[in-house]
Design a protein around this nucleic acid. Structure first.
Lengths: 154, 154
DNA sequence: AGGATTAAGGTCAGTATTAGTCAAAGAAAG
DNA sequence: CTTTCTTTGACTAATACTGACCTTAATCCT
């Protein structure tokens, strides 16, 4: 965690954890000022880290009294939802999609940081040893690994 | 006698030994500079010496604030033998071979009966959904699943 | 009421900063 | 002498950050 974007991400996640309602409202200009950066940096952080795919919902309004509201999607049964996500993986999966899934599961405490590390490493290694059908193999591996983990830990 | 790659390998391993967390983070450009070589030399060292097979997990990020993080996962002796078996899996694996491996690991109490059942089911499912390269996919899946299990339970 | 002003946030393209890939050249080993 | 391992560098890809310009909403002022 060393870039400005990482710090802003951590800050927002901390606020979210401290919130009863699983959502926080903030001022873009204020936050940018706190971190001594341009306001568009906040948009960068939001669009790269707080995406729907990772389980976040961002709303905003412009003009006087404008705001940015970030919500963390909480499902009743995180485990069941995770299985659903896995089932929705098609026959192919690119690296970005994989990372989003892992980030989602980590943020919802269904995987540890170490799990993610290992999974990424394993998949990277296996996918790297093949010249064709990388995305297909990745889909298969992620589906299998995550399914196994979720099944054995539930 | 010892090549540059060997020195870089030794240097990283020394850093790892000195780390509480069994992982180190470094800058590719910085390390290359320290050893007066091109940055891609670092990639060479990583890909030839810090492989998953040897118990290392390498993560990296490009761009501003980029890094390379190397983690070491130790395994105790009981598992080390299982890892050896995994290494012996070639690029292809038929059903019979798979069953033999699973049976062996179950007999030696490295996997539970449920693990085996689950793994078998998952592999069958994935392999069944593909028309070509079944044996290749099976090898990849078994290697990955077993590797993950062994690494996380040791 | 309605235009002018003020106060937000959004977009996008450009620049900077890393790391990855690949193939060819060179060195070492068998 | 052949094969395998090492080293290099040109090209590629990903990520972070900035600033100029745009859009939307509330409020003020006649």
């Amino acid at each position: 965690m060393s870039t400005l974007a990482d710090h802003i991400e951590a800050y927002i996640k901390k606020m979210l954890r401290g919130s009863q309602t699983n959502s926080v409202e903030l001022s873009r200009a204020q936050l940018a000022d706190d971190f001594a950066c341009v306001p568009s940096q906040i948009n960068y952080v939001l669009s790269t880290r707080f995406t729907l795919e990772r389980g976040y919902v961002v709303e905003s309004r412009r003009g006087g009294g404008g705001y940015i509201r970030i919500g963390h999607v909480q499902v009743d049964d995180g485990y069941a939802h995770a299985i659903k996500i896995l089932k929705s993986i098609g026959s192919e999966l690119d690296e970005k999609q994989m990372d989003n899934i892992l980030a989602y599961l980590k943020d919802h405490h269904l995987l540890t940081a170490r799990d993610c590390q290992l999974i990424r490493g394993i998949v990277q290694q296996e996918v790297g040893s093949v010249t064709q059908g990388k995305a297909i193999l990745r889909a298969s591996l992620i589906r299998s690994l995550l399914f196994f983990i979720l099944k054995t830990r539930s």
